[in-house]
Amino acid sequence: MQVKIGDIVARKSYQLDLLFRVIDMKITESGEEVAILYGDEVRLIADSLCNDLLVVDEEERNQRKQEEQEKIEQSYYLLRQDYQLLREKQEYYATSSYNHNEEYFHIPGRVLHLDGDPTYLQKCLTLYEKIGVPVTGIHVLEKEMPDKIVDLIDKYRPDILVITGHDAYSKHKGDMNDLNAYRHSKHFVQTVRNARRKVPHLDQLVIFAGACQSHFESLIRVGANFASSPSRVNIHALDPVYIVSKISFTPFVEKINVWDVLRNTLTREKGLGGVDTRGVLRTGMPYRKYENQ
């Protein structure tokens, strides 16, 4: 079957392990047809000879989607469980050990999510809404993020910043310490660097940065609180949401244990890591509900 833009495919040389969307086609100097691929569920960009690709039929896609949905629901369940425990703990403190009945309110951290992939961005926004995280999502190409980040911080004044999209490490371009061997890590690094010039303190603006196989050490070094990918593995499209949701709903007086954040993600410590960070949730009272609200 002829491969064309928009097809969902898998790579024969990788035992059909991942599904990809074909987003572009090109012809090499030797006349071979190459497809540019975006991961369907992982934040990976790749290219492949068309004769190495197999177009995946709808039945196979649906089966894989069902398996993927089960993993997502499990992570969502764990996140909601954590959130419920945090709410009960906050209720205990806000009511002085349940000694008064004054109603209180929560102000979770506001998220600004920049994504190089509009399809993944929409998936993330849907999950943010389901969890209840206040978010502004903007599609920005990875290479344009460094130039746009300061103005976006000024405009939206987020508590949490997500810088993600697609990335990939290529062995033939250099060793793992060479940023030039990565598709977009250098753009993510420069975006974090520019954001930290604007807001230097790690607890005044919490930053998640990176995608599949990104240069984790460089992202942490320039000021990201959490980043991918310590073992240069692929990360799931929704992993950034699970991380920042945990931060958004953790009280600002509490320090977040890194493992407590990673354990709810789909990739865990091989694909994600970070440093101790304070939460950003604030609790207030009294809560007054007006008829015109």
Rank of each mutant, 00 (worst) to 15 (best):
Y169V: 12
V222C: 08
Y120W: 00
R197F: 13
G271N: 09
D260E: 15
A237R: 03
D82C: 05
Q81L: 04
Y92H: 11
K255G: 12
A237S: 14
H172M: 10
E88P: 00
P158V: 07
L152T: 04
P286E: 12
S214Y: 12
L272S: 07
M1V: 08
G223H: 05
A168Y: 06
N99I: 07
G284H: 12
V280K: 04
Q122K: 15
E217M: 13
Q81S: 07
G132H: 08
E142S: 03
M285C: 11
L262V: 10
I72Q: 08
Y242T: 04
R110T: 12
N99H: 11
T267G: 03
A168S: 14
N225Y: 11
Y287W: 07
D276T: 15
Q190N: 15
V244T: 12
R87M: 11
F252K: 08
T267E: 05
R183I: 06
Q69K: 10
L161P: 04
R11M: 15
Q84I: 06
D151Y: 03
P200S: 13
L78I: 08
E102W: 02
N194P: 00
H113E: 01
T250H: 09
V241A: 07
L152Q: 06
L161D: 03
H106A: 09
V22K: 12
Q15Y: 14
V9A: 07
N62G: 02
D147K: 14
A211K: 01
D159G: 09
D159L: 05
S245G: 11
K65H: 05
L262A: 10
D115W: 01
S248M: 09
Q81K: 12
S48C: 14
E254T: 10
R268C: 06
F208W: 06
L78S: 11
I8G: 03
H236N: 15
P240C: 10
Y83W: 09
H166E: 08
C212L: 13
P240W: 03
P118Q: 07
G223I: 08
